[in-house]
Design a protein around this nucleic acid. Sequence first.
DNA 1: TTAACTCCTTTCATAAATAAAGTCAAACCG
DNA 2: CGGTTTGACTTTATTTATGAAAGGAGTTAA
Lengths: 136, 136
Amino acid sequence: MLDITDMHILKELTKNSRITMKELGEKVHLTGPAASARVAKLEDNGIIEGYTIKVNQVKMGCLVHAIIHIYTKSTNHQPYLSFLKEHNQFIINNYKVSGESCYLLECKFPSNEILDEFLTGLSNLVGYKLSIVINK
Amino acid sequence: MLDITDMHILKELTKNSRITMKELGEKVHLTGPAASARVAKLEDNGIIEGYTIKVNQVKMGCLVHAIIHIYTKSTNHQPYLSFLKEHNQFIINNYKVSGESCYLLECKFPSNEILDEFLTGLSNLVGYKLSIVINK
DNA sequence: TTAACTCCTTTCATAAATAAAGTCAAACCG
DNA sequence: CGGTTTGACTTTATTTATGAAAGGAGTTAA
């Protein structure tokens, strides 16, 4: 399905997705149009889901990176999921997981005060355990 | 520091970072060069850290998305960190966290067998609790 | 008022993307 | 064996975007 050139293309686009097709072609030993055709195929296959940017969260004013283990009390998760939607500006990921907890919620907050508010609202709906990311 | 137009630019680039500066300009009510200048400034400021792609992990053959809570036994974390480096093809994130566990390790594996091998190696170095992501 | 500054637009030369046509090699088949 | 098809690539030519330079409008402050 994917040959070595495709893998090379994905690697280069992961490093810099705004590279020109001509430059990408040079890196993977193809001409511009050939590289472009490969990329179009990767898009059509759904291998490449999209092009995006990495934003510096700290400079954007989001200093507190929290990971919250969620233990749902009731069988109805809807109130919790609605709560997330209302606060989606802070949410990075909400994974449903097997294991000890029910969900693993990854968030970023501009301050501890706002995290505190968030947790106060959250505690009405579910049980949780909080971890704060110190380093990556 | 960042005005409403900058925020709008970041939003559009997050949705599609391969958009042309002309199109981006149209979306945020600027000309191409003006949009381009704004983006250059965001790059210089370090707000935009880079341009990348979203790759469909499942289609790439990585089906098992695991989150592993790490409890280091010894005070020397180096063996664990070296182990991660040796298996870095599976590692998405390794967060040092405050809270119950020491690290929160996010990984993707092509199969349960390979996850099993990974855990076998891991258990020589640290204690862990495993969660498998069922849904996002 | 004027100077300095910022941010934008306009213009234009250069560079890249894209479409179309042509090349080549491998696979298939009468 | 020769001819046809197919797929992936290159080449070429046209369209389109980029990026540099010049200029204008609005703001601030001397």
